[in-house]
Amino acid sequence: MMQLDAEKQMRRRKRKNTIFHILFLSSTLFGIVALALLLIQILVDGLGWLNWDFLTNNASRKAEKSGIKAAIFGTLWMMSITAPLSFIIGVSTAIYLEEYAKNNWFNRFIQTNIANLAGVPSIVYGLLGLTIFVRVFGFGKSVLAGSLTMTLLILPIIIVASQEAIKAIPGSQRNASFALGANRWQTILRVVLPSALPGILTGSILSFSRAVGETAPLIVVGAVAYITTLPNSVFDKFTVMPIQIYTWANLPQEEFHNVASAGIIVLLLMLLTMNAVAIFLRNKYQKKN
């Protein structure tokens, strides 16, 4: 009797486990299905519009003539400032925090501050850029203002990623260098950074892709939607791919939604390439260890 009860109860517990297993699995599949639907829809709508003209035309009021050239160049212009600048500032900050900073209140404050900056909504960075770079510094609605805003936006991400990479270098390597008579800076330059570089690059590329995909703060700092000339200098007005897509998506005509899909394909391809490079670096690095 007791034995029977126990078995019955056990069957119930097993069944419950199976049901929840299925539920948990479905939750995980939900994200995958959503991703698949999103990609399929965009490919179906956009592939037909994707051709050489689309890549080499500027914006137009006619869907057939619309192209993404100005937006691609705008994104490239912006990243040519944002990427090196955020990399230098981010890695320097990370080196300072990991290799030099003592555990005092000021350095803890910087660390907390960085963590909080990472959680500030991107639109608030837009307000910061609009006020400081566009107005106070007088850069206007230019490539420069947009690039600097994006630099500040992705800075916390690069800093944290670089810190992780630097932390992963075992202290024994540093000690070996010190024991040979190297000073701290030599040790950082010749031992720590070379080992941490793949990790730092991976993290940096991933945050660059965040900058490439951002829309809202650039709208606020005044990157314009309808543009038919490419920027010639950092003080020129510009647009970027996500804003161009936003503009097309906002138009009521159905054809422009297809144009937007084509634009999204180009954007996703660019991000995919960046991610592939990052993953390639990461794998190459992991194999070495």
């Binding site: 999103l38 709508d45 939604h257």
Partner: peptide, 20 residues
């Protein structure tokens, strides 16, 4: 796959909401 999902720009999600 979840990492890819996390890396998709929000403008793409917005478009997905509107058109799907």
């Amino acid at each position: 796959i979840l990492e890819i999902l996390a890396g998709i720009p929000t403008i793409v999600y917005g478009f997905f909401a509107l058109t799907f």
